[in-house]
Design a binder for these strands. Structure first.
Length: 361
DNA sequence: TAGGCCATCTGGTCCT
DNA sequence: AGGACCAGATGGCCTA
């Protein structure tokens, strides 16, 4: 019964504290003998002359100890969750070269180091009147082996297996090992319009995984099912892990920008060159950078419509599942909830040969 | 076996 | 008094 489990421990005895430090008994140790005592701490002042009695708090009751442990676990979960979010802020194409496949999880210390680098470089970019393109950013932040803990890759593989081999002590509180459908980061690129664009990365080990996609200007008529395909930008999301070389190649163009999702909407990341603006210069590409902030989006001349097409391998019966979402007066391009039933953001569902098309029309 | 990483427990301290 | 935060200790898991 709970009343037994969480019964309060009596405070009854006192003892003189022995020594200044207490050794942690570990969570499996039996505190019962210690719990019988309240502790008095006799501590001398720094002057040493005045002995000062200082009461030391008694060990917490079992109930309070349990609740304190629970709070601590919750706190650590929040910290881990923040780390998980931070991991997705570090561009995958920067880390994948040395860390390995993007599905692998960065350690906490690695995440912090990469984030510091990323912030530093982005700060430099902001101060640089001649903004470097995305490729130079990637190059300058490229991951060094010194940032990587020696056991990272193998440990991450072990973590994958742990998902299927739950540890009773850990699964009760470990977070960040489940995959979620929301919170995607979608990177667009103008350079390619192939459905097999390699610069797409997912983080299946994360609970708010990221996705990278490419957006390409297609200056010729597209095979899009939408008839009013006026802006001619086509994106695709592939169920492939990002290959860094491809990623760098594909992100080297000036009109790369990013879409970020909070699970309900797609929002252009601030201050990234926008292919939406540059499309007006078609067919000649602009030499200057067009930057796109969320507030820019409604300024488009024509209402936007986001079409999203789920492409399965040819053998699948569901060859095309076009979804079209009008979004004329909002910086948000499309509510992702509308795509929920397609489970678009579960890379395994897309498959190795499947693809998602995203059309701005 | 040593070392890295992690989750958890625990006690101390500070703050409300 | 109780919660938040922190750091130390511990043990598990894994790799080199």
């Amino acid at each position: 019964m709970d009343c037994e489990k969480y019964s309060l421990r009596q405070r009854e005895k006192r003892r003189l504290r022995q020594g200044a430090n207490t050794k942690s008994p570990g969570y499996n140790s039996d505190n019962s003998s210690e719990c019988l005592h309240n502790i008095f701490l006799c501590q001398k002042t720094s002057a040493g002359a005045n002995a000062k009695l200082k009461t030391k708090a008694a060990p917490l009751s079992k109930y309070r100890r349990k609740t304190a442990n629970a709070r601590e676990r919750t706190r650590m979960r929040e910290i881990n969750s923040a780390f998980e979010n931070l991991r997705h802020c570090v561009p995958a194409c920067i880390t994948s070269e040395d860390v390995g496949p993007s599905s692998e999880k960065l350690t906490k210390i690695t995440t912090l180091r990469l984030a510091m680098k990323y912030i530093k470089v982005l700060s430099e970019v902001l101060l640089d009147p001649q903004r470097p393109d995305y490729r130079s950013i990637c190059d300058s932040i490229s991951y060094r082996p010194s940032d990587k803990a020696p056991n990272d890759s193998k440990r991450r593989q072990r973590e994958k297996s742990e998902d299927q081999k739950p540890n009773a002590a850990k699964t009760s509180s470990v977070v960040g090992k489940r995959r979620g459908k929301k919170g995607k980061l979608i990177q667009y690129d103008e350079s390619e319009s192939t459905l097999n664009h390699p610069c797409f990365e997912t983080s299946p080990s994360s609970n708010s995984s990221s996705a990278y996609a490419s957006l390409s200007p297609s200056y010729e008529s597209s095979a899009s099912p939408s008839s009013n395909y006026s802006h001619g930008f086509e994106s695709n999301i592939m169920g492939h892990n990002c290959n860094s070389s491809h990623c760098r190649k594909s992100t080297s163009d000036l009109s790369t920008f990013m879409l970020e999702s909070d699970g309900e909407s797609l929002n252009p990341s601030e201050r990234w060159p926008s292919p939406l603006r540059s499309s007006r210069n078609v067919p000649s590409m602009p030499n200057d950078l067009f930057e796109c902030s969320p507030s820019d989006m409604p300024s488009l001349e024509n209402p936007l419509e986001l079409s999203l097409r789920l492409m399965e391998p040819p053998t699948d019966s569901v060859a095309f599942s076009p979804i079209r979402v009008p979004c004329s007066n909002s910086p948000c391009l499309a509510p992702l909830m509308n795509f929920e039933s397609f489970d678009l953001f579960h890379p395994d569902d897309i498959g190795d040969h499947g693809a998602l098309d995203l059309f701005l029309t």
